[in-house]
Design a protein around this nucleic acid. Structure first.
Lengths: 256, 256
DNA sequence: CCAAAAGTGTTGACAATACACCCATGA
DNA sequence: TCATGGGTGTATTGTCAACACTTTTGG
């Protein structure tokens, strides 16, 4: 600091608060959301078509500014509700988690924007729920494979988010966040298989999930038809556990 | 956004850039550093004694503002060099990684400060290196157990950072970042035992490390006395691997 | 010779794999 | 009755934890 002739920051150092307020350039602080769902055997991400320069017509992650009295988490949930049109209580229950903060000086060509990125996992929901909000006219689910030429550094954020959820499936119970409130083990397995892009042995997967205490708990009466053919599957709910000990390791074999 | 009458952010939405520049309250963006080392069988963290209000006399994590043309990562390394007095090339090689961003509106009583927190792992180094910088007169290593009543929300940041490195040791090769360039397996094991607070079986730990390809590689000629008694131990360097497959799981047993 | 720490070997428990097989349902 | 997906059983394989034992140093 002395070398730069720079006063220390309020929250971290020993600077004079009155000087400090003028010692920094103001930054815009935004949130960006990587919202994922599993749909028809493919990982999908929620994207918005840009209507203005720069990057007109390109797809971008939803997001927005953090308001003066908000935390980044609060802003993320607010933006999520606005862009998806989902009711507040649904958004409040979604799994939302900080990914990382992107702060390269030129990531936005117009001005200095520091963006806190979040990863959100939602169950597959009818498309209208997404299109619903008046504000979300351009919001759409795209298969992650189709999502190219994203605006700004959003391709990097998306890649980081994918990698994160892939490894989080290994050692947390996160996969249930992709499922509806009650789900079959086949649906749960499909989450793993689509995120990892590998096939899993069905009997072994079943055993692993059921023997991990608190991962899922059986719904007493429930049995659901699995979409037509096959034996009806038992229904499960997410259990109280959050971590997976021991982890469910991703096969290192060939990518499907 | 429509509900709030608020224009979308530049980096994330569809807002008019000229309006956008005035649509947000300026935030200060800072970095906070949780710098850890393993010292005498205890995890230590680098802290700075505050000389001004608020929290005069309290310990705080080192940190500072992000400058106009810096990324958070660049700012973190700059601050680290300034506060520790270490030469730039040493700092450039240290393991530094984003922890998470803290953005509660009132985390700094004076003004709105959003802080990107980093976790840094350094090998045990002589205390003078830390005290060296003219700016770092108040920087000291404290055992994490002794670090209480930290300024701002730094106790939360510190707790989050501890938890993160604990779990990162399980599935990455990160532990070598706590060791000098060449180290014995006993030193490496001490890192795990100190961070986790558990005892590990020496033979099994050895096998696990040596059979994981790329974790460590033997230094051809080297053998070092382990500080007096005992058989001299072979020396190892960090290998090219970064991930640990399969992971080295932390025993869930009693805390030592 | 003893203590201390490195290094090797062996064994049993347990977990993960790979597969064979049966069950219930829709077409 | 056949295809499809759910559910069960089992043998093999591999990994990990526990612990006995040898080796090499300093005191």
């Amino acid at each position: 600091m002395t070398a730069a002739g720079y006063d220390p920051p309020p929250a971290s150092g020993r600077g004079d608060p009155h000087l400090a307020a003028h010692a920094f350039e103001p930054f815009a602080v935004a949130v960006d959301l990587a919202v994922f769902t599993v749909r028809a055997g493919t990982l999908h991400v929620l994207l918005i078509r840009r209507g203005q320069e720069p990057y007109v017509g390109a797809w971008a992650l939803p997001g927005g500014f953090v308001l003066p009295r908000e935390s980044a988490e609060t802003a993320a949930r607010r933006e999520l509700a606005e862009e998806t049109g989902l009711p507040a209580e649904v958004v409040a229950a979604l799994h939302l988690e900080q990914l990382r903060t992107y702060s390269e000086p030129d990531r936005d060509p117009r001005m200095r924007v520091v963006s806190v990125a979040f990863t959100v996992l939602v169950p597959d929901m009818p498309e209208p729920a997404v299109e619903g909000g008046g504000d979300a006219a351009h919001a759409r689910w795209l298969a992650v494979g189709e999502a190219s030429d994203l605006a700004f550094d959003h391709a990097v954020i998306l890649a980081d988010a994918r990698e994160r959820i892939g490894s989080k499936l290994e050692y947390t119970c996160l996969a249930t966040a992709f499922c509806p409130p009650e789900f079959t083990l086949g649906e749960l397995r499909a989450v793993y298989e689509t995120v990892w892009g590998t096939a899993l042995d069905r009997p072994n997967f079943r055993r692993k999930v059921l023997t991990t205490p608190g991962f899922v708990e059986a719904v007493p009466g429930g049995a659901r038809l699995t979409g037509g053919r096959g034996k009806p599957a038992a229904l499960y709910r997410p259990g109280p556990a959050t971590a997976l000990h021991p982890p469910l390791l991703r096969p290192e074999g060939p990518t499907r």
